[in-house]
C-alpha cells in the first residue's frame, strides 16, 4: 500500500507537467538542493550555502526568520479578516462584534492577528538590537541596515494604522493622540495631520485612509523591502559572522 502510494508520488514527480512547474527535484544530492534554492523565485533570494556556525541558535536567535514568520501569519489572518470588515463608521466596530460572536473562528483569527502584530513589533526591535550588538551593520552591510531601519518604521506604522481599524475607544484615542503628535512637526505639522486623517478630526475619512495604508500600501512596501533585505544578505556575503581568530577557524 505504502509502496503503491510512493510509486504514484514518484510518477507524479517525474511527470512532464510536474517537471514543467518544479524544475528541480527534492533529490538527495547537494546539486539538487542547490538547484532547489536557485530555481525557486522565493528561495533564490538566499545563498545556496550558509556558514555552519550561523546555524547556532545563539548566533542570530532566528530573530529575522521569526519576524518574517509573524509577517506571514499577519498576511494570512489579515486577508481573512478583511472579508468581514467594512472600513466605515460605525460598522467597523459592529464587524468586530460579529467577528467575536458570530463568525466561525473569527475571534481566533482576530486574536492571532492582534497578538502576532505585537509579536512582530517586539521581534523587529529585538532583531535590530541583536544586529547592532553583533556589529552586523558594518560595511558592506550598511545599506541593508538602513533598509532594516525603514522596515522597522514600516512595522510600527503597520501596527499603528491597524490600531484604528476596530474603531473602539482604545483605537480612537490612540490615533487622536498620535495624529496630534504629528501636528507638532514645525511648520508642516497641521498639513501632515490633515493629510494623514483626511480631515481635521479622526473620523470616517481617517478610518478609510488608515485602512488603505494598513491593507495595501504598507504591506506591499514591506514585502518589496523585505525582498531586497533578504537578497542583500546573500549579496553582502551571507549572514554576518564576526571575525574569528585563525586557530578557531581551523577547528
Amino acid at each position: 500500500m505504502a509502496n503503491n502510494i510512493q510509486h504514484y508520488i514518484d510518477e507524479l514527480h517525474q511527470h512532464r507537467i510536474w517537471r514543467s512547474v518544479f524544475r528541480s527535484g527534492s533529490g538527495d544530492s547537494n546539486l539538487h538542493r542547490a538547484q532547489a534554492v536557485q530555481s525557486n523565485v522565493f528561495l533564490h533570494l538566499f545563498a545556496v550555502k550558509s556558514r555552519r556556525r550561523m546555524l547556532e541558535f545563539s548566533a542570530t536567535w532566528y530573530l529575522g526568520a521569526l519576524t518574517f514568520g509573524t509577517f506571514l501569519v499577519l498576511v494570512i489572518t489579515g486577508i481573512l479578516l478583511m472579508l468581514y470588515y467594512h472600513p466605515s463608521v460605525p460598522q467597523a466596530y459592529a464587524d468586530m462584534k460579529d467577528l467575536q460572536f458570530v463568525v466561525s473562528s473569527g475571534v481566533f483569527l482576530r486574536n492571532l492577528h492582534r497578538w502576532s502584530a505585537h509579536a512582530m513589533v517586539f521581534l523587529v526591535f529585538a532583531h535590530m538590537f541583536k544586529v547592532f550588538y553583533r556589529g552586523a551593520y558594518r560595511p558592506p552591510r550598511e545599506f541593508n541596515w538602513v533598509i532594516g531601519v525603514v522596515l522597522l518604521l514600516i512595522t510600527l506604522l503597520l501596527s499603528y494604522t491597524g490600531y484604528l481599524l476596530p474603531w473602539d475607544q482604545l483605537a480612537y484615542w490612540a490615533v487622536t493622540v498620535g495624529s496630534n503628535i504629528a501636528s507638532a512637526v514645525p511648520l508642516l505639522g497641521q498639513k501632515i495631520r490633515f493629510m494623514m486623517l483626511g480631515g481635521n478630526s479622526v473620523n470616517a475619512n481617517a478610518l478609510l485612509r488608515f485602512y488603505v495604508l494598513h491593507c495595501m500600501v504598507l504591506p506591499l512596501t514591506a514585502i518589496f523591502l523585505m525582498a531586497i533585505h533578504f537578497w542583500r544578505i546573500r549579496k553582502d556575503g551571507g549572514l554576518y559572522a564576526p571575525d574569528k581568530p585563525a586557530k578557531e577557524g581551523t577547528k
Binding site: L80, L83, Y84, V103, S104, S105, G106
Partner: peptide, 11 residues
Amino acid sequence: VFAYQFLSPNV
C-alpha cells in the same frame, strides 16, 4: 475546511 466554515457567514 476551516476557511470554508469561516467564509460562510452565520448571520
